[in-house]
Design a protein around this nucleic acid. Structure first.
Lengths: 171, 171
DNA sequence: TCAAAAAAAGTGATTACTCACATTATTTAT
DNA sequence: ATAAATAATGTGAGTAATCACTTTTTTTGA
């Protein structure tokens, strides 16, 4: 991976996340990245493929952020780490999240259950904690984490919410 | 309001909700609505203003859907109506919701606390039910409803979730 | 010296939007 | 009442700018 290719990916990520895929032209990316427009097509073939490579990176990044939760064995610790996950994410990763949430609504974007592994982890956790309906609890927790992430990205999150959730889950 | 103007609004709503604002050209709208492209600009001035008028309609529609919750006085009934709201929405309104959720992520879209009234209603409700932290409970309930709506729109909702929530809130 | 990397200079298609003009609906004057 | 005047609605051909993408030329590093 050359420096310029990385610059294209980095710039495209930022512009796609900020303005959206359709609203971001390849010439705009090239200018912002400080490269010629042709280089984008040399490296990625077409615009859609640039997005595709970006989404692979995005998925890897997000998987990496979830890793500490997967590796945690103590169920209570799983819940704590899950609830506070959005807060612990460094701002440099925000564009990845933003792109992910934005692209959910695109018709081409097939969401084919990328969240199944984390839902299974949550279900195991709630089973270990003797919750009556661990499957539904897992869905609820997943919804909460997503909502917190969205609130943070849209700059309308209130930190008081976290201790409230900790009490709810007796943590 | 003339028939053709209504057709433009209706078609634009559907295309914006489905493909997104930037990805939908005015010529595409005109063709699908069966009018000349010039008429869009006669009625709305420019593309952005078409979206603006559409968003006013959208807000009115959504407010109307929330009305039964606002008018309900029995706190338990408020919760029941809230939890089941996304389920009770007719499919013909889906485009309004989709547009709303999609546009949250656009930089021009200023979200200036349109949800404050419903959050206040929820807070009153939880206060009446003697919940310890009604403000935070209101935020949680709002998150849940939004999550359900998103899941329905993205066609990944499981109906078993509703009875689970009813038990949670002792309904 | 020469292949890969990058830039520069193109391509036709599509974009949002304008404009001159036609048609239809509404108001006004007699 | 009705013809004339005015306003509202609608069309289709045009605009320059921008779009994704291609081809050609130049630069770079081993």
């Amino acid at each position: 991976m050359t420096i310029k290719k990385e610059q294209i990916l980095e710039t495209a990520l930022h512009l796609f996340a900020k303005e959206g895929y359709s609203a971001t032209s390849t010439s705009k990316i090239a200018k912002a990245a400080g490269v010629s427009e042709g280089l984008i097509f040399r490296h990625f073939g077409n615009k859609k493929n640039l997005l595709k490579e970006l989404m692979i990176q995005t998925q890897e990044t997000i998987n990496h952020l979830f890793l500490p939760i997967f590796e945690e064995t103590d169920p209570k610790e799983v819940l704590i780490k899950t609830i506070t996950l959005p807060l612990r994410i460094d701002k440099e990763y925000y564009d990845y999240w933003r792109l992910q949430y934005k692209l959910r609504w695109e018709p081409e974007y097939t969401n084919n259950n990328k969240f199944v592994p984390i839902l299974n982890k949550f279900e195991e956790t709630f089973t270990a904690l003797n919750y009556k309906e661990p499957k539904q609890e897992a869905i609820l927790l997943n919804q909460i984490v997503n909502s917190i992430a969205i609130d943070i990205l849209l700059d309308r999150f209130n930190e008081d919410y976290i201790p409230f959730l900790k009490k709810k889950y007796k943590l």
